[in-house]
Design a protein around this nucleic acid. Structure first.
Length: 581
DNA sequence: GCCGTTTTCGGCCCGACTGTTTTCAGTCG
């Protein structure tokens, strides 16, 4: 039983409790435990075996017993009892923005709605508006929310899919039958969410490899199994396709299965013009004659790497993140591909939280970890006072924090520079949540919106515009407010934001949290092309999430960005000059 | 259900916003 699976079961219990109307604090305790286990680096089953569950924060006698039961049996009595009382399918309704536990319970009680289909039918037939406390507008919001969920349907966020894929690769690479194995598909291209996990293995004994995958503990069921290809469903609800090829076919198979489909199609057309043919089994010279549909027809042109493959087609190597047929093939032919920013270029993180607001770790801990990651600097940017629920800082607390930062700096010496910052709320009227003289005293001011999402486009854009024009503001964080698979961008005129950001030379953030990735690849590309400085920040609330920088860098790469356009690749001196201006 | 110790019971990040209401429940972060 994996940590994430245990966490999901605890989440399920909490959701069902909320719908049932149990004590909200009890449900919260389950959620807290789920989060603790989900973020745990140690294996929960091992912890349980050693009797260490109760040592974990938020887990006492009661939960420890239940977690034990879950690890042993895959479920627990209280979950089964809840399921008998509350239709499990009601949980799906919670995914709709604006529908919480109470609404879900009401919909079930009043209209017998259990599933998303039930809900849609009721909404379209105008049944919702008749419920006390609901209206035509509520009905419309539900219809809109449903439509959005459907288009997202079944996709897994990169932040979940990639670690899962890596786990499978680690397991399968142990096999003696496997000479090479790698992740392909949209995970390798670092798309923000993926339809399934694609793996490619090289082996002379393919059936041993496909068999091994089917037997992995993560696998719930086998969907299809052939000689060299197998599809399985994971217990976490994600599909995996594994393709096994001969070792000499590994490079071209990886390339083929990395895609995208559109990129490959264009590449194959180009190859054909040059008398070549590409498929998953290799690169072949056609020698004038069309020798039927035999896969291996023509003469094999050996390629030892993808770079060689692209070279054979007369173009520069195209990194996976660019393979979307968004102009990369033309650029590679012309030799004008950008030199993409790399994880190693990042010299600091300019948006992180500590235990001064809603973060988990101390200033020193965050700075130490940033140093361990090889950074030159880190900006401490806790929330401002308007976010009371996150323990936001007012002027006084901020002044105290300045002392703590100075002390941390003294303790760390010249290992890393700790910058004093704030993530200041852009209030509903566009003012900032702290006085100008407080903001101007800081090294880094990150401004962002945390409330009033439902304002109209004029209002929201106006707020961001006002923040951009504020002389103290250096970076606008998560500019569109989206949460991947959960909440759309709010109504904001990005073109206008870009125009003002360009004029004021204010940086826009690529928020690296896999929940956000905001700006998105497409928006970041547009911003970068306009010459707007970008900052890739993790918004980390604990040590582990500082590592999510890789996802932000991936977005920047998918956005065709080079190092120089990212302000936190700059050396400290240059960054400080920029922040001062 | 967890936690602390000024409390083994009674708190539990808590305020803003929204929409539907005439005083507030539900949702969100």
């Amino acid at each position: 039983m994996k940590n994430l699976e245990v966490a999901q079961i605890l989440e399920e219990i909490a959701d069902l409790m909320d719908i049932r109307g149990s004590d909200a604090f009890k449900a919260r305790a389950y959620r807290r435990a789920a989060a603790v286990i989900g973020n745990l680096s140690a294996d929960i089953a091992a912890v349980a075996k050693e009797g260490g569950l109760e040592a974990l924060p938020g887990i006492g006698k009661g939960l420890a017993t239940k977690i034990d039961e879950i690890i042993r049996t895959g479920t627990c009595r209280s979950l089964e009892e809840l399921k008998a009382e509350v239709p499990e399918a009601l949980r799906d309704l919670l995914a709709i923005p604006g529908v919480g536990a109470r609404t879900a319970a009401t919909l079930y009680r009043e209209l017998g709605i259990r599933t998303l289909d039930d809900l849609e039918r009721a909404a379209r037939n105008g049944k919702i508006r008749n419920i006390k406390g609901m209206s035509v507008r509520t009905e419309q919001r539900i219809i809109d929310g449903l439509a959005r969920m459907r288009t997202r349907g079944g996709r897994t966020p990169l932040g979940i899919a990639k670690p899962l894929a890596e786990e499978l690769v680690a397991a399968l690479s142990q096999l003696s039958a496997v000479s090479a194995i790698d992740i392909a598909g949209s995970i390798r291209r670092r798309k923000e969410d993926v339809g399934d996990i694609d793996l490619v293995a090289a082996s002379a004994r393919p059936d041993e490899v496909t068999e091994a995958l089917c037997r992995l503990p993560q696998v719930a069921s086998v969907l299809a199994q052939g000689a060299t290809k197998v599809s399985v469903a994971l217990r976490l609800g994600c599909q995996v396709d594994l393709r096994v090829v001969a070792p000499e076919q590994f490079v071209t198979a990886c390339h083929h299965l990395t895609g995208s489909k559109e990129h490959n199609a264009k590449l194959r057309g180009l190859a054909r013009q040059r008398g070549l043919r590409i498929n998953e089994y290799g690169l072949f010279r056609l020698d004038g004659e069309e020798s039927a549909d035999e896969e291996t027809a023509g003469m094999l042109v050996p390629v030892r790497s993808e770079a060689e493959l692209y070279a054979q087609l007369g173009m520069a190597y195209i990194p996976p993140e660019l393979r979307e047929d968004r102009g990369e093939i033309e650029a590679a032919l012309a030799g004008t591909l950008p030199r993409l920013v790399e994880p190693g270029d990042i010299k600091g993180d300019l948006h992180v939280h500590t235990d001064w607001s809603d973060g988990k770790n101390s200033i020193v801990e965050m700075a130490e970890r940033a140093h361990a990651r090889g950074y030159e600097y880190i900006a401490i940017t806790d929330h401002s006072q308007a976010l009371a629920m996150a323990g936001g800082l007012g002027p006084e607390k901020l002044a105290h924090q300045a002392e703590a930062i100075a002390a941390a700096q003294a303790a760390l010496g010249d290992k890393i520079r700790i910058l004093r910052g704030i993530e200041v709320d852009i209030l509903s009227d566009g003012r900032l949540d702290l006085p100008d003289e407080v903001l101007s005293d800081l090294d880094v001011v990150v401004a962002s919106i945390h409330r009033g999402f439902h304002q109209n486009e004029e209002q929201l854009t106006g707020r961001v515009e006002a923040a951009l024009k504020h002389p103290a503001v250096d970076i606008i964080a998560h500019p569109t407010g989206r949460l991947i698979g959960h909440r759309d961008e709010y109504a904001i005129d990005l073109e206008r934001v870009f125009e003002v950001a360009r004029r004021t030379e204010t940086a826009l953030e690529i928020n690296a949290s896999p929940d956000r990735l905001d700006l998105s690849d497409v928006n970041a590309r547009r911003a970068g092309e306009l010459g707007i400085p970008l900052a890739i920040d993790t918004d980390a609330h604990d040590l582990a999430r500082l590592a999510e920088m890789e996802y932000g860098v991936a977005v920047a790469r998918r956005a065709w960005r080079e190092r120089d356009g990212i302000i936190n690749t700059w050396p400290l001196e240059r960054l400080l000059r920029y922040l001062k201006d």
